[in-house]
Design a protein around this nucleic acid. Structure first.
Lengths: 216, 216
DNA sequence: CAGGATCCAGACGTGGATCCGT
DNA sequence: ACGGATCCACGTCTGGATCCTG
């Protein structure tokens, strides 16, 4: 699929998916449905990238670079609410100095959310109405406040105490192939230490509100 | 092949290769001889890693970590002299402060050289007598002096002027998939710029002398 | 002939996320 | 339910070097 050239085109393509099943999309894209979703965790996300014409695999750029829009699939439980947290980005060894311009701020500035039924792993799960979102003033404030708190802990040598329990909307959790993976980091004493790679995630309670945010 | 546990064992294994052909070794290791050596440039080196039990592919470590020995194959022309320069290591974005402890110093501290006839690409090319080498005082001085000169140019903003022409024994040359590859580097003004990745290489005139260094 | 350009294999990192035990 | 652990795809990087023009 070629890339969408305007926001309008992107919205139209996304809306056209509403009600379709993963099976429909897989057939359309000539994708093979994996037998086992325990492996292939990113399969749905990559399918949707194809379907919508996102430039898959590119780094340090939004999924739709020309539009400045990020694509996120979001799994829904039987009640239509987010089933899982949403990975935002990895936390690099170099701590960013401020919210403005940070990777989290940029990633979440403009997001196309595609909700997908995920109560079971059957291929007939349906796509719900996608929503193109920009954070409200209130949401922005929450995100910035969380980001600042978490970043402060990373900066001021409290990285070890920083568990997933901190943050109202944004949290920090492991992000690696497994718990044996380590990477070098620089702590507040400028010493080089080893730590497990982590990332920023959005809590389901936050994305639930996102899905209810009226389109501006 | 399991790893050699002593220097003596390594020397014995290496000496046992003298006079054998690449074809012999490929058969022994169940390696397929590539049809075309223009591609598969590293094939011979990797074959020898297998043959001698080097821990292939490991990073930031000697090929024989327990022995602190590095393995290098070296191509010989019809006159029995080195046909090519020898790649030592990549130059990272962070310039090392001093010779002692530098990657070049560590890589060249103890090397097992395996000379291989390379006038043509036929599989019957023979292995010559390997030599386990440690730099002589004179060689060390040359290497350190070159390293210091080249490193100074990298440090003091003369990286652009640093061509392969500098250095008596050690030189700096491109090291990348192709000339379009760029990476971010920090120059002397702490500005971020793009430059082609480069590496340290030993000139053939130096390795020729190495092959003549008497074993201590 | 040698400086600049290039090629492959395999490890590693990043972006796509969900799994799963307490 | 949720915090910590984990899985795949794929692009990039690194280590093995030699190729190839002027």
């Amino acid at each position: 699929m070629n890339i969408p050239t305007t926001i309008t085109e992107l919205i139209q393509r996304a809306n056209a998916l509403t009600g379709l099943t993963l099976s429909d999309l897989a057939t359309q894209q000539n994708y093979t449905l994996p037998e086992n979703f325990q492996h292939h965790k990113g399969w749905v996300g990559q399918l949707l990238e194809q379907v919508l014409g996102a430039s898959a695999g590119s780094k340090a750029e939004p999924d739709f670079p020309n539009l400045g829009v990020e694509l996120k699939t979001i799994p829904l439980n039987a009640k239509g609410k987010p089933k899982e947290s949403t990975f935002v980005c990895a936390i690099s060894a170099i701590i960013e100095p401020q919210w403005q311009g940070s990777v989290v701020q940029k990633k979440l500035a403009h997001v196309l959310w595609v909700p997908i039924e995920s109560e079971s792993d059957i291929p007939e799960r349906k796509i719900h109405q996608p929503i193109l979102w920009q954070p409200t003033a209130e949401q922005l404030q929450t995100l910035e406040q969380d980001w600042q708190e978490l970043t402060d802990m990373l900066t001021f040598g409290e990285a070890d105490r920083l568990t997933a329990e901190y943050g109202e909307a944004l949290q920090v959790r492991p992000k690696a192939a497994n718990s044996r993976v380590v990477r070098e980091t620089v702590n507040s004493e400028s010493e080089i230490t080893k730590a497990i790679p982590r990332g920023f995630y959005l809590r389901p309670s936050f994305t639930e509100k996102v899905l209810q945010t009226p389109t501006p």
